[in-house]
Design a binder for these strands. Structure first.
Length: 854
RNA sequence: GCGGCGGUGGCGCAAUCGGCUGACGCGGUGCCCUCAAAAGGCACUGUCCUUCGGGACGUGUGGGUUCGAGUCCCACCCGCCGCACCA
């Protein structure tokens, strides 16, 4: 028989016990019955709580633990406040790392991936995450990608999926194209190698059609400001005008119009030259026959082979070559010279710009290098009035450099100068007037430009979802009929990338009959970007076992949108933008009913190594969750990652920190439960005692205070660190009064167990059962007793001139003059008031009194 | 350059609506329990001055508003994150 002193908190005993119960009883499964009018409809409010699905590679790391501990706390909280909670799990199983690993080790990506999935599944159970396992999915299973292909076909039908030849980003190491979003500082996001530009025919999704809605609807969702800012930034909407510059040099009878985009139409009078991107299709045609023909060829050939990174460097001195031609500035009628320069980008605007050296830093730098005229056309009010007269005067090339302020956006306080009929107008009004004039004269119009490009979705790799398209010799491009889906990924021997998809080698698979004419056809051999798979998985969870459709519309309506999405900020652009696009496109096709996938988003911070650096095996600072769980148990690990600091901030792992949570929170609560349960029949309820007094009252009050505090911290602010602090405070308070009424202490300890359950579900369940004989997850979330939140006296803060001089007890709800009297009578206040004249007394009821003296 | 977020003890951080700065945890110090240790419990722990009553100072810097500012306003410094020759 173990003696009492040998009994201690032992997570190794407690945790498997509860995990088994939850698994055996399918405790966290939730049905779809509420979607249909059944005999006994589930009328609870729905709540869809979702963490970003993991990419299964090796074993889960500490970041996963934090992500799922966080989501699980929210899911548990929502269940206990009476909601019908969907909390599923799946795996983003296709992707490059598994394939690269396959190339290295010879292990088939499916084998490695499924092995990893088994590990993740094991650990999610071991961590005690409350997952509805009946909805588990993996994106590499045909039962899932069947519907990924179906969505592709729907997009294709709507011309939202299309094929075109374009200059695309190509990773020479991974031997595949990349989406713009996957290129970081000119390098491949995955392997870090320098990205090249290639002209290839590729599949795109027309996300640019949705640019405005993706921008505007950010206002309708509850996301962190910085994530919204990143999306706005990425979409990059700029408002301005398209202005046409006419070139009559080649053939006056057939002039060519070159439109440019500008955000500063008010500076049009200052456009003194014109620049084209090296990739502009007309560059060679324009230079042909001029003295610059040869140098233009040399310049362009050099520019297009230069690395993206090198060319993008803003500090690089401006280079370029004249084209030997001119265009007409539509407002001045002036002939201005044309240049080709690599500081103009083909992929933004029209690939050509009007250059206004007086009001644009880049144009200014170019003008200085090539000795071109600089003409100021906007000036601060007052300054502008003096030289406004010489409207058409040309300004010499060595004109004074404009002050830095000249490069900033125009304001009401600036006026147009040297701008013909528009001179004297303020810049904002002038801009409007110039655009109107352009429109009237047929030389331009208002226009909007975006940074966002269409999403390149095809990949020349094996381990991905096949694109359900065939190419027929007679009919051309033909979609695979829906009934023939899924197009299954064939087994192949050799995944080695060779610049075309490894699937191309699977001749039996590639060669098919045309679905339309029955003639000879070949399958598309590219696979889809894995971001396609993860752009809709949250929809599939709603109806994960549906064999006839991607989802039932009614079921989808009963769960979507995701009420709380949780994940790392690294997906702020890619995954979150693509998912928003998918939902809008699907809603437009009348396939679903929400406009946004994720109503609220929480981005968790990273757990850094103990040295404060990002964990990496090369730094040797990796904390393995398995070791932590072994030593402290899942509850301690879960609580610690939430206690370490605000959940949205990065925090360094600390061994002594987790030890503190283990001892001060979990072990102490367990000992309380053990002490208070030992002599009682376990079925006895731990209700709040009636009319407690003295120490018992203090404890009961603290318990109610903790209920209130934890509820608000979890519900309103995701402040898990302070919620856990409050539970520790409650436990400390119970220890402080070991001789207080037993029922009060049992009530308080049971409350602590109930409150800690969303964070430490095993200990929460164990302690609650020890104290009450009940299952804590079947109990409603506690409500604070309002009468216990009030006290009959409070500590009145007594200030003189804003400085605290004393503290006295005062009755709650006392009148202002009573409080004033108490304050003036207090010793500390008297000492500072005597001999001075009181000029004013500020009373804040139930808080403080401030005496102002001269 | 543009956009976003931060700066408070030895450390991680708390202060939610303009009202006691430093909750909670770590670290540190002392005590209790013990033959002893482990485990556990309790107390103290911003700086300086002190006649031991207390006093002065303290939230990146400088100003402002206010009876009162970590919190609001203006200017600046520093750090982190995202984007960037984006016209």
């Amino acid at each position: 028989m173990p003696t009492v002193s040998e009994r201690r908190y032992d997570p190794k005993q407690i945790e498997p016990k509860w995990q088994e119960i939850w698994a055996d009883e399918h405790t966290w499964e939730v049905s779809n019955d509420a979607a249909h009018d059944g005999p006994s409809p589930d009328t609870r409010e729905k709540s869809y709580v979702l963490e970003m699905l993991p990419y299964p590679s090796g074993e889960p790391h500490i970041g996963h633990l934090k992500n799922y501990a966080l989501g699980d706390a929210i899911a548990h909280f929502h269940r206990r406040i009476g909601r019908r909670v969907l909390h599923p799990m799946g795996y983003d199983a296709f992707g490059l790392p598994a394939e690269n690993n396959a190339i290295k080790t010879g292990i088939h990506p499916r084998i490695a991936t499924e092995r990893s999935i088994a590990s993740y599944r094991h650990w999610f159970h071991r961590w005690g995450i409350s997952i509805d396992w009946s909805r588990e999915l993996a994106t590499h299973e045909p039962s899932y990608y069947h519907w990924t292909q179906w969505i592709f076909l729907k997009l294709f039908e709507r011309d939202l999926a299309y094929r075109k030849r374009a200059a695309v980003k190509w990773c020479p190491v991974d031997q595949t194209v990349l989406a713009n979003e996957q290129v970081i500082d000119g390098c491949c996001e995955r392997c870090g190698s320098l990205v090249e530009i290639r002209q290839l025919e590729q599949w795109f999704f027309r996300i640019t059609d949705y640019a405005d809605r993706l921008l505007d609807d950010l206002d309708t969702i509850h996301w962190p400001e910085h994530v919204k800012a990143m999306q706005r930034n990425w979409i990059g909407r700029s408002e301005g005008a398209e202005v046409v510059f006419r070139c009559e040099d080649l053939d006056p009878a057939h002039p060519i119009d070159y439109p440019v985009f500008t955000t500063r139409p008010d500076t049009l009078f200052g456009a003194t030259f014109f620049v084209m991107a090296p990739e502009h299709p007309d560059v060679f045609k324009l230079a042909e026959g001029t003295e610059y023909e040869q140098s233009v060829h040399e310049y362009v050939n050099h520019a297009i082979t230069e690395s993206v990174e090198l060319r993008g460097d803003a500090d690089k001195p401006k280079t370029g070559v004249p084209l030997g031609r001119t265009v007409t500035n539509p407002v001045t009628g002036q002939q201005i010279p044309m240049y080709v320069s690599d500081y103009v980008l083909m992929e933004y605007g029209t690939g050509a710009i009007m250059a206004v050296p007086a009001h644009d830093q880049r144009d200014y730098d170019f003008a200085k290098t090539f000795d071109l005229p600089i003409r100021r056309v906007v000036a601060p009010r007052g300054e502008g009035d003096q030289d406004g007269g010489g409207a058409t005067q040309s300004v010499s090339a060595d004109a004074r450099a404009p002050e830095d302020s000249a490069f900033t956006a125009h304001t009401q306080d600036e006026v147009l100068i040297n701008s013909g009929q528009f001179t004297g107008m303020n810049a904002v009004e002038g801009q409007r007037a110039i655009v109107e004039w352009l429109d009237r004269e047929g030389n331009g119009h208002e226009s909007v430009s975006y940074k966002l490009r269409d999403w390149l979705v095809s990949r020349q790799r094996y381990w991905g979802c096949p694109i359900p398209i065939v190419y027929c010799e007679r009919c051309g491009m033909v979609p695979v009929p829906e009934d023939d889906l899924p197009v299954e990924l064939p087994e192949i021997e050799d995944y080695q990338p060779k610049g075309r998809s490894p699937l191309a080698a699977a001749e039996d698979w590639v060669s098919v009959k045309c679905p339309d004419c029955g003639g000879h056809a070949r399958r598309e051999t590219d696979t889809m970007d894995t971001f396609v798979d993860s752009s809709w998985y949250y929809l599939r969870y709603c109806d994960a076992r549906n064999d006839h459709a991607a989802w039932d519309r009614q079921v989808l309506r009963s769960w979507m949108p995701v009420d709380q999405y949780i994940g790392g900020v690294e997906h702020a652009i890619l995954h979150l933008l693509y998912s928003r696009f998918f939902v809008k496109a699907l809603a437009d096709m009348d396939l679903m009913d929400t406009q946004e996938p994720f109503q609220a988003l929480f981005t968790q911070g990273m757990i850094l190594g103990p040295d404060g650096n990002k964990m990496s095996s090369s730094k040797g600072n990796v904390i393995a969750p398995s070791e932590i769980i072994e030593r402290y148990g899942a509850d301690a690990a879960r609580c610690y990652v939430l206690f370490i600091g605000p959940a949205d901030q990065d925090a360094a792992w600390s061994e002594t920190g987790i030890d503190g949570v283990y001892r001060r929170l979990l072990a102490r609560l367990w000992r309380l439960a053990d002490e208070l349960a030992e002599n009682s029949v376990t079925t006895e309820a731990a209700d709040q005692p009636i009319d407690p007094e003295g120490d018992a009252l203090t404890i009961v009050r603290k318990a109610n205070w903790a209920i209130e505090k934890v509820t608000r911290d979890v519900a309103d602010r995701f402040a898990f660190n302070t919620a856990l602090s409050a539970i520790i405070e409650l436990i400390n308070e119970i220890y402080r009064y070991p001789d207080a009424d037993r029922q009060a202490r049992r009530f308080a300890a049971a409350t602590a167990a109930s409150l800690v359950f969303p964070f430490a579900p095993h200990l929460g369940s164990e302690a609650y059962e020890m104290l009450t004989g009940r299952r804590v997850w079947e109990e409603p979330w506690p409500d604070a007793d309002p009468s216990m939140l009030q006290t009959e006296t409070f500590e009145l803060v007594c200030q003189v001139n804003g400085r605290v001089r004393d503290r006295v007890h005062a009755p709650s709800g006392a009148e202002r003059n009573e409080l004033e009297k108490l304050c003036l009578e207090s010793r500390g206040v008297k000492a500072h008031v005597d001999g001075h004249e009181i000029s004013k007394v500020i009373v804040v009821p139930d808080k403080l009194v401030n005496v102002v003296v001269r």
